[in-house]
């Protein structure tokens, strides 16, 4: 337990290290979700349009 607490404490720099890593997760994750959601939406729309055409 002490080792885990020590890890999360980051030598007293926890309040700088973890927000930096947290922001990385938010920014990269946000870009990933945006890209994938848009992709799926376009795919559905295109499939529907091609279906109508047939």
């Amino acid at each position: 337990m002490a080792a885990i607490a020590q890890f999360f404490d980051m030598g007293g720099y926890a309040r700088f290290v973890w927000p930096a890593w947290g922001l990385a997760v938010i920014v990269l994750g946000g870009l990933l979700i945006d890209s994938v959601v848009t992709y799926r939406k376009r795919r559905r729309e295109l499939d529907a349009a091609e279906e109508r055409k047939r």
Partner: peptide, 10 residues
């Protein structure tokens, strides 16, 4: 010290 771990993101 441990603050250098920000480097791997920055």
């Amino acid at each position: 010290g441990e603050a250098v771990r920000i480097m791997y993101v920055h």
